[in-house]
Design a protein around this nucleic acid. Structure first.
Lengths: 253, 253
DNA sequence: CGTTGACTTGACCGTCTTCAAGTTTAGTGG
DNA sequence: CCACTAAACTTGAAGACGGTCAAGTCAACG
């Protein structure tokens, strides 16, 4: 079944980090690289569907995603679920829990994942010895906040079609922002319609009908467990979204 | 009309900060206090209804609220507005803009306010010289993120009554968390039903009808431009909210 | 070849929106 | 102090958007 396995061996040592090779992420200085190499405790391999972090628990670790997609969610006591955001390569997972103590949300893998594992306790040391990295972490937190603001706007004020268009455009933009996909391999967003429903605050049935409408309009195409974008600009226009998601140089731990 | 005025004189020098006198906020060390005193450039007085920060602009400042309430919001091009969160004494305003460059939301005063003004550019110095304060800022950002997660859950998955109950309970808890209100002066939340509607993603009409229902149930009482809570636990129960908003020691810049 | 998870579809119903009036209150100027 | 205005709040009626229920189909997988 959905499983989690940690290994202290490194398939991806920090000095050969496949993500830092990407132009999009800012490069480390030498001392930073050395620090991060020590800060990293190992790698975590996660199956699709596995729970990486659980609401209400205390986890001694902090993660960066090397490969794969995941989502963060919260639940009400009667089972209603709200997906709050997604996380993909280059994103930090578990910072909130590190700062506030207990996890206030859960994280589940949407695809097989590889994570870098860091020790929560050592974050303080990072703040003491590497102010630039500390600043970067705050940058990352602010970016998350900004995305949440957008999602709130969407759920609160857009109708079903606009919401869906926004969500898909948003996810594609972010995926592009990881720099991992070439133009030639049109990437597929690895989510089910149930995920979409739980993100948009809609029912599964209505989500399905909305998906069909956008598919009819040739804006996207739905497959089993995935979504392909046919017309990104069409989606953005429908959502009324100025997707200026500045995909510029950004920090990364 | 709604006005903004800055003064470099300090009615509230940092060593006599009325908020730090409150038990709830962690105390500065002496060097921290000295740094912050220099970091603070003045005080800003703001009328109710005035816009403190505007979406799309670059503001060279960062603020902490000394007095008064405000809200953060985003708008769609056709005028639909979504209030994303509220800010009250002790909260930091403008961090997102500082980190990401341009403001992605606006901030408006709900009541007359007094703000401490800091220089954006000097934040880097804070990170270099005071890692503990830097850590605190990240803590504050994480707390904001956590609140946004809650709000998303609410808008996405709760119905109108639950949403309203949650919002009012949430705001009261936070107000209590500033430690500025005694049990004896039952505080009034300084918002209009239009604010509530724009927070909950509801229409004004439906918001009004929902307010009436909660008032009939003796959970709250509405006044002109304000809301008084009659039964906090009743609201929390209705919302299904375990409001463990740990009102413990927290940092503050 | 049966089971399971994901997607699909139609019918009916309820929550919430929109429209279109009100009333009440606070603030302003004569 | 009173008349006027604007902002906030209120209410009812009609209808749309999205939810719920109840069946499906389809593909993957062991």
């Amino acid at each position: 079944m959905a499983d989690i396995a940690i290994r202290s061996a490194r398939k991806y040592p920090c000095d050969k980090c496949p993500l830092h090779a990407r132009q999009i992420f800012r490069q480390f200085t030498k001392p930073e690289l050395e620090f991060i190499s020590r800060f990293k405790k190992g790698e975590l391999t996660v199956d699709r569907g596995a729970t990486v972090l659980s609401e209400g628990t205390r986890n001694p670790h902090l993660y960066t995603i090397l490969q794969g997609w995941s989502f963060r969610y919260k639940m009400l006591s009667d089972g209603r679920r709200q997906i709050v955001n997604y996380a993909m390569p280059g994103d930090l997972i578990g910072l909130q829990g590190t700062m506030l103590g207990e996890m206030e949300h859960s994280v589940e893998a949407l695809s097989p994942m590889i994570l870098c594992v860091f020790e929560r306790n050592e974050l303080q040391t990072l703040y003491e010895q590497h102010p630039d990295l500390a600043y970067d972490i705050t940058w990352i937190a602010s970016r998350e906040e900004c995305m949440l603001d957008e999602n709130l706007l969407s759920i609160g004020r857009r109708n079903a079609m606009e919401r869906l268009a926004y969500l898909i455009a948003f996810l594609l933009r972010r995926a592009e922002g990881t720099g991992l996909h070439s133009q030639k391999t049109p990437l597929e967003i690895p989510i089910t319609q149930q995920h979409v429903a739980d993100t948009l605050g809609l029912s599964l049935v209505h989500t399905n009908k909305t998906v069909r409408k956008l598919a009819e309009r040739q804006l996207l195409q739905w497959r089993d467990r995935g979504c392909a974008v046919l017309d990104l600009e069409g989606l953005e226009k429908l959502a009324g979204w100025t997707g200026d998601q500045s995909n510029k140089l950004r920090p990364f731990i």
